[in-house]
Structure formats: C-alpha cells, structure tokens
C-alpha cells in the first residue's frame, strides 16, 4: 500500500475507534442514569483547544514540535471526531439559550469551513498545477499591469503599422476594461471561462475586417487575452485557498472564548450534577 493510503487508513481506523469508544461510554453513562454531558464537554473543549493550537504551531516554526503535516493530520481527524462528540454533547438536538445557540452556530460554521477548506486544499492545487504558468500571489498586480501595458502597446503598434483603427476601436470597446480591472467577486468564488470564450469569439469575428499587419497584432492579442484569463483563474483559486483560512480562523477564536465561557457558567450552575 502506498504511504499516503496507508496513513489515511490508519488515521481513519483510529478515529472511528476513538469515536466509537466515546459513544459507547456516553451510552453506558446514560443507561446508568449518569451525566455524560460534562465529560463530553471536557472532551469537546479539549478538542477545540487542540485544534486551535495548530495555528500556534504555525507561528513558531523554529520549535521542534513535530511536522506541520503531522499536526494537520491530527487536526483533520480530531476535527472530524469532534463533530460526533458535539452531537453527543448536545444530545443530537438544537440547543436552547442564546449562548448555547451561538456556540453551536460558531462550531457548525467552523466545522463546515474546515470541511470546505479540506475539499479545496485537495481539489484546487491540481487545477493550479495544470496551468502553464506558476504565479506567486503577491506578484499578480505586477503581472496584470505588464499584460495591460503589452496589450496597449500591441494595439498602438497595430494602429501605427496599418493606419486603421478597427482593432483599436475593438480594444477600447471590449478589451480595455478586461485588461485594466480585476474580476468581480463572483468570479473569485466561482471562476468560469465564459468571458474568455466570449472575448475570443468576438476577436475572431473582428478578424475578417483586419488588414495583414493588424492580423499579426490580433494574434498577439489572442495570446494576451488567454494569459490574462489564466492569470485571473490562478488568482481566483489562490484567493480561495488563502481566503477560507481567514474565515476558519476568524471563527475559531470566538468559538474558543464562547466555549470557555459556557464551561465556566456550566460549572457555576451545575446544580450538584458533579
């Protein structure tokens, strides 16, 4: 078996065994009329704190705290197991009370953002790898400006060489905005190549009206439109890969604080349950 497959199998078996153990223990406690919710609460808050610690590990790379990859594996499987513990803790019902509902919503959002992140981090990199060019995210503004300048230069050269303004007019009407502005938010969330296809089709339609020197420049514009679209696609995917983490982290800290508050209040008003 390949190393990754073997790791996946081992971690899955351990997680399922752990979850089954906690579930069995909870059922056993309830069957003898005990209170398992405090114990599942401890396990849950312990899991949430451990999951939050992964970010601390990332902030301190000089420390020999195993590898980030091992931490991520633990983060993923403990995160998945925590969903079952959460279900056991709330009794598989919607909790009541403002604080409890807030914590449940925060937990669910953090969990879902984690799942989305897991899916994106597994599916988006191969899409990025298929592109012909690898771009560093911080350099995109510079590359975008270079493409815009090259497109402008190509059009100006075409006007100078042919004396005709057909390509220039098309550029001003359809391509200038495309090269100058970043894409809309919708594209970043769900990038499609419809605009690229549309522009290339229009450019193809315009070719019949172009002289030979313009045709040559038109070919260069075709290439630049494609490059710009590839760049936007790459930026959109990288933006998603970075963006989800902000959401996930942004939810983590309120969740940790609210959970601690909930635990403290639960102890204050335990009513002799412990």
């Amino acid at each position: 078996m390949r190393p990754f497959a073997s790791r996946r199998l081992t971690n899955s078996v351990l997680t399922v065994a752990g979850v089954a153990g906690i579930t069995a223990w909870t059922v056993w406690q309830e069957n003898k009329l005990g209170r398992a919710d405090f114990h599942t609460g401890y396990v849950l808050i312990g899991a949430v704190l451990f999951l939050a610690c992964y970010n601390l590990r990332k902030k301190l790379p000089v420390l020999p705290w195993t590898t980030s990859s091992a931490w991520l594996q633990a983060h993923i499987y403990i995160g998945l197991a925590s969903a079952v513990v959460f279900g056991l803790h709330v009794g598989w019902k919607v909790p009541n009370g403002f604080l409890e509902i807030s914590i449940a919503v925060l937990y669910c959002l953090a969990f879902v953002s984690g799942i989305v992140g897991l899916i994106w981090t597994r599916t988006l990199p191969p899409q990025l790898a298929r592109l012909s060019e690898e771009i560093i995210f911080e350099r995109t503004a510079m590359i975008r400006a270079q493409l815009r300048d090259r497109a402008q230069r190509v059009v100006l050269e075409s006007v100078h060489a042919s004396g005709a303004t057909t390509l220039g007019e098309f550029y001003a009407e359809r391509l200038q905005e495309y090269f100058e502005r970043p894409r809309r938010l919708g594209y970043y969330l769900w990038p499609t190549n419809s605009l690229r296809r549309e522009l290339l089709a229009e450019l193809t339609a315009v070719r019949r009206y172009l002289s030979d020197p313009e045709q040559e420049k038109c070919e260069q514009l075709f290439a630049l439109v494609r490059r710009r679209d590839d760049l936007d696609f790459q930026v959109a995917l990288q933006w998603r890969l970075k963006g989800w983490l902000f959401v996930h982290l942004g939810l983590t800290y309120p969740l940790v604080l609210a959970s601690c508050l909930h635990g403290w209040l639960a102890h204050l008003f335990d009513g002799g349950a412990l």
Binding site: K58, V62, P125
Partner: peptide, 18 residues
C-alpha cells in the same frame, strides 16, 4: 509537488523566521 501545494507560503514564513 504542485498537485498538493496550496501555495500557503508556510514554508517561506518558516524559513524567514529561522
């Protein structure tokens, strides 16, 4: 391995920190 790399730059930050 670009099929696995999420371009998070954790490697770059770790290198800079050390």
């Amino acid at each position: 391995d670009l099929d696995r790399c999420t371009r998070c730059d954790d490697c770059v930050r770790a290198c800079a920190a050390t």
